[in-house]
Design a protein around this nucleic acid. Structure first.
Lengths: 147, 147
DNA sequence: ATAATTCCTATATGTTTTATAGGAATTATA
DNA sequence: TATAATTCCTATAAAACATATAGGAATTAT
């Protein structure tokens, strides 16, 4: 399951997506609208900024905003940032690979690994290519919003 | 990612699969062969027994054994027993469904949900129909072992 | 009887997740 | 320039969960 953090991130980002190019959005507004604990959200947004997903402006009338068009923000990047690996086992992870400590057989012969590699590939098949825009409620936005 | 518990369960079960119909296998043997902490394994095997996956016999020369042929033990059952939902969000879970607490829109209109439903379906597509036998190193066993 | 095992409940230990605190820095604007 | 509203940053608290162990009761073969 996704952590609360990852879910909060998704909801915050879709909210910011709705306000794309509408200026700086303060944390408290997002927190209130999406029912996310404000201080926790603050930490999440900070992380997203440091990862180059969000921009921010401090001071009065400041806030956060998307650095790229929602179509250009990859869903899989958000998931990995918040929760780490997509794969269910370290030995089949693309970005967080670690060798298996339990398996008595070589990796390339392991059937456990083979199957969990299939699972990972099936998951990536779905989410790679998906963007923040796909997660948003597109109907709510003007036609010219979509690239 | 799978918990250590789920990984231990898989390894213990494949080990028992290798010994299918070879009598009662004591916890300590499994623990030693698969490098699993014995007391933790004990709790896991107990759970698998209560779920009807394993049988056991107490006393001298006792131990655990598979109640069904490895082909008849569903991979997905093991994963759900050990780690709960397959789905990444409660609102798309088949067996552990819970409504979304954050989403402002009705479920059937939510694009977040739509995508995570796709992910779940892709995952289930791979693992439903897979059995313990698929996780085992079949090559090690006599031909007549496979149904 | 003894030894080897499972059974069961409780608890300890460690780690991660979730959440909050609080003050410094920044900025708009009155 | 003072004020208010914000982000920035580090630290820490609190809660939940995962992992692991303890220890004795019950069972069984020999």
């Amino acid at each position: 399951m996704l952590s609360a953090k990852a879910q909060y991130a998704i909801h915050a980002l879709t909210y910011l997506g709705e306000q794309y190019q509408a200026g700086y959005i303060p944390i408290n507004q997002i927190a209130e609208k999406r029912k996310i604990p404000a201080k926790f959200l603050e930490a999440i947004l900070l992380e997203l900024r440091k990862a180059g997903v969000l921009g921010s402006k401090a001071g009065k009338n400041g806030g956060y905003y998307l650095l790229r068009h929602p179509r250009q923000i990859e869903m899989v990047q958000i998931l990995r940032l918040m929760d780490g690996p997509i794969a269910l086992l370290p030995c089949v992870s693309k970005k967080f690979y670690e060798p298996c400590r339990l398996c008595p057989y070589p990796e390339n012969e392991c059937n456990i690994r083979r199957i969990f590699l299939e699972v990972r590939d099936a998951t990536l098949q779905v989410i790679e290519g998906k963007s923040l825009l796909d997660l948003m409620q597109k109907e709510d936005y003007p036609d010219d919003f979509v690239i």
